[in-house]
């Protein structure tokens, strides 16, 4: 895709995507050279994946909503609510895992359906609805259970500790022994979600509708696309992915707490924007989102391994990065407008 476009002209989508991919590789290679040690091991990369699988899943939903021209900031709250509900169900009620997955998906779907209905069919501003959704989810999390606790359900812990070995990617440790590289179940789910979303957005009719509605909902309407339904579906999918992402997050941390997944909505929005999804809608790519998540988590790792371990540095760097990419987008948009005027 990139080859074809360098011949012609870089489109906005590809320009933004290219920037992201370059930024990621520059950052990772820079980290390898200057920080060395940890970053040279393949397992470090897989650990980044393990820790951010949930963010990746949630970001895919976020990108979809943003491509359709909206925004969903309830995802972090939903993830926290999902992990708390599942934790309470598994630990206090001794339930089984399949039902807990159903609970997670159900909560996500419920949020998606309600928010989607309010935004698409009642024309309420997406930011207000999802902000309320976020506060509702956070409040409900404390209502379900106030104190944080670990889940001791045996089957769940077994599932949580399942390691999938990645062949040929291991490294030798200090004693010269070969250690397998591993990923967790969450990563597999996340990769599946990325692939599904990529194909859906690229090659299905519904997928193209999202871009059409986000680009210009008026013309989409004239083309005979059901704009309201498209918006509705985007929020439902985002809610669903927030539910799944919440479960993957739960699988990673293995506990329930009201402060879980705090700032996840921010990270998801930042990843999407860094990945080249435009806030104005109509432009975006799941591959970009994947690299957005990777860039974001790499920079987090770099910040913490560069000795700036205090929690506030991570937040400030993420905010700076988001700011930078927002400005780049704004400049790209201005350039595009000027281009249109000239032609």
């Amino acid at each position: 895709m990139l080859k074809m476009n360098t011949k012609k002209k870089l489109t906005d989508t590809n320009l933004l995507l290219l920037i992201t991919i370059v930024v990621f590789f520059v950052m990772y290679i820079g980290a390898m050279i200057f920080l060395g040690e940890g970053f040279l091991k393949t397992q470090t990369f897989f650990n980044i994946l393990n820790a951010n699988a949930a963010l990746l899943i949630v970001s895919c939903g976020m990108s979809l909503v943003m491509i359709t021209g909206g925004i969903d900031i309830s995802v972090g709250g939903v993830a926290a609510l999902v992990s708390m509900c599942c934790a309470v169900y598994l630990d206090h009620k001794g339930g089984n895992i399949f039902v807990s997955i159903l609970i997670a998906v159900g909560i996500g779907l419920a949020f998606g359906l309600v928010q989607g209905f309010l935004i698409a069919y009642l024309d309420v501003q997406p930011f207000i609805v999802t902000l309320a959704g976020m506060f509702f989810a956070r409040g409900m999390t404390t209502i379900v259970n106030t104190n944080p606790f670990n889940v001791a359900n045996e089957k769940f812990v077994a599932l949580k500790d399942t390691r999938i070995v990645v062949p040929f990617m291991g490294s030798t440790n200090r004693l010269g022994k070969y250690v397998d590289a591993y990923i967790q179940i969450g990563v597999v789910v996340a990769i599946l979600v990325v692939i599904l979303m990529y194909f859906m957005l690229k090659w299905t009719k519904q997928g193209r509708n999202f871009y059409a509605v986000g680009g210009n909902s008026q013309s989409a309407l004239m083309l005979g696309i059901n704009v309201k339904k498209t918006k509705f579906i985007s929020y439902v999918i985002s809610g669903l992915l927030a539910g799944i992402g919440g479960y993957v997050y739960f699988l990673y941390v293995g506990s329930g707490s009201a402060s879980h997944a705090s700032g996840m909505e921010m990270n998801a929005i930042a990843s999407s924007i860094i990945g080249g999804t435009m806030l104005t809608g109509g432009v975006g790519n799941i591959v970009g989102t994947l690299f957005g998540v990777l860039s974001l988590s790499t920079i987090k790792n770099i910040v913490s391994s560069a000795g700036l371990g205090d929690a506030w540095w991570t937040n400030i760097t993420i905010a700076l990065m988001l700011c930078l990419f927002l400005v780049i987008q704004s400049v790209v948009m201005a350039r595009k407008k000027r281009g249109l005027k000239k032609s």
Binding site: L122, D123, I128, V129, R138
Partner: peptide, 23 residues
């Protein structure tokens, strides 16, 4: 409890915006 307040307020917000929605 103070942490749970936001859930109730969120419901009020939703009711308000729904009532004032043009549709």
């Amino acid at each position: 409890p103070s942490d749970a307040l936001s859930a109730y307020k969120a419901i009020v917000v939703i009711l308000l915006v729904v009532m004032s929605a043009p549709t």
